[in-house]
Amino acid sequence: MVQNDGNQLVKAQELARRLSDATGVYFRVGSERQSTDDSSLDGQGPGQLRTLEVSVGDEIVELVYDPGSGEAGPFTTRVLKALAREIFDGLIVSDRVQLEPWTWEKLLNMALVEKWDTGTFAARVGTYQLKGLSLGFPVLVHCSTWIPEVVEVLENLFPQAPVLWVLKPDLFLYVPLDRNEDGLVEQKAFGNALIEQIHSLLADELGVLATVFVGQVIEEDIWAGFLEVRKLTELHRRFFIGTLGLAAWNVGLAVLMLETRSIVGQDYIRGILGHLNKELLDTLRVFLEKDMSVADSARALYIHRNTLTYRLDRITEITGHNPRRLTGAVHLYIALWLSNHSN
């Protein structure tokens, strides 16, 4: 627990926090620095901000708030000021008010609303003396429907998780690695297993369809981890819909394609594969899946290898790319990948 040491800024922050708790509207101290880098936040920040001037001891402090951020209200300025006074009086009635400690969840919440960059987040971690985290995975669980028991199930599945941040219908977790997951291969296997475990448990226990996103292993920089897994949700929506989730190391070409407008991707697909009929497309798909092995592909397609050779020649003629050569296969693979993953 942090003691009220008389520091005006700490008092103002505590006042803002308690006002937020009381009203459901998010308040912060106006003088606190904000990030100017909003590019990664996809417009999920607050709407029109307002300021509220309140007395904190001998000083007037500006609290900034977004009237649209809470479910209750709307509150008039007069009501908010009265509430602030009442809370502050409560704060100073006793000189030894116990202020609630900062938690990772509270800090993440603030970072989200105020659109912090990773530098700001790191600075605040130091300011609020949050305890260090060991190596672990940032995990975002997106639930198709929200029920409160999701938290209970995940708390019990990961009792060692130091962070469990509820963002209905999402939930962000920081899952520490075991000592058994020293190597990169073991870490990735553990991360992939998280997707299946969380998905299956929520489906089985609660009938909730969860899509699970797992970021790269991190230490401390949990905000960067959150931003990464949130980006994975967009990759999933565009390229992997219908799968249980996505781990950062499994995105493959998708990360390159994310910035590409879908119309460009469609033009690329059409330009390369547009004139192939279903039989030739199936042949190409199997040929690339079988690592360009004529024998394996012919067997998988139940055709003679001469028939396969004929079809591969036709594909070369039609597309201008020879699937038997690496450069041609790369072009055809990218077009097929885009075609399969364009939702």
Binding site: N156, L157, P159, E196, I198, H199, S200, D204
Partner: peptide, 13 residues
Amino acid sequence: AMVFQSYALYPHM
């Protein structure tokens, strides 16, 4: 009731 390949059990229970 569902049974999956990934048999996640609650570790502390």
